[in-house]
């Protein structure tokens, strides 16, 4: 069995994603959490590239790691949240949460581990489904109506944010 470059990258990115995700939930300082989450998103974007979904990888970085996370960071800094102000749950509740999450993981893995185990993902010739050209065509032909509707969603979200955020 030979180890390809893809496999090596997969494992590195997986470890990075999981580690930074764990750091997100364990960091005491919210700002650190945000930064670790950005790291997670970068690893996930790396996975997307491995899966030859370049478009989504880029969008992920721009929208998530860029816009959204900056928004988070902005809010946290606006509220001046730091390690000292961070509320902590007591140890038992934390443990209960961790065990519950672990159980869920266990059960999900157990129930899904046999799913199409034979299927693999490899790069094949012409496998350019994630390229912007192909997705763009799809998006603006087949899915043009949902695409336009999502703009209305954005508009309403914007209006909502303004309404909620404004002082009385």
């Amino acid at each position: 069995m030979t180890i390809t470059i893809t496999q090596i990258l997969f494992w590195i990115l997986s470890v990075a994603a999981l580690f930074s995700a764990l750091m997100v939930i364990t960091s005491k300082n919210p700002v650190h959490s945000v930064l670790w989450l950005i790291a997670t998103f970068f690893s996930i974007s790396g996975h997307y590239i491995l899966l030859s979904a370049q478009f989504l990888a880029v969008v992920n970085i721009i929208v998530y790691a860029g816009a959204i996370m900056v928004l988070f960071l902005f809010v946290i800094m606006l509220m001046n949240l730091n390690r000292e102000t961070e509320p902590q749950k007591n140890r038992w509740i934390k443990m209960a949460g961790a065990i519950a999450g672990g159980c869920l993981l266990l059960v999900l893995v157990a129930s899904l581990k046999n799913v199409e185990s034979a299927s693999t993902i490899e790069d094949v010739k012409g496998g350019d489904v994630g390229f912007i050209k192909r997705l763009g065509k799809e998006l603006f032909s087949t899915y043009v109506v949902p695409f336009e509707i999502s703009s209305i969603l954005f508009l309403s979200a914007m209006v909502g944010a303004v309404v909620i955020g404004k002082k009385e």
Binding site: G97, A100, V107, S111
Partner: peptide, 14 residues
């Protein structure tokens, strides 16, 4: 927490 536990139970049952 309860929701997660319930999900676990539902998955287990299934």
């Amino acid at each position: 927490l309860l929701m997660v536990l319930s999900m676990v139970i539902i998955f287990l049952v299934q």
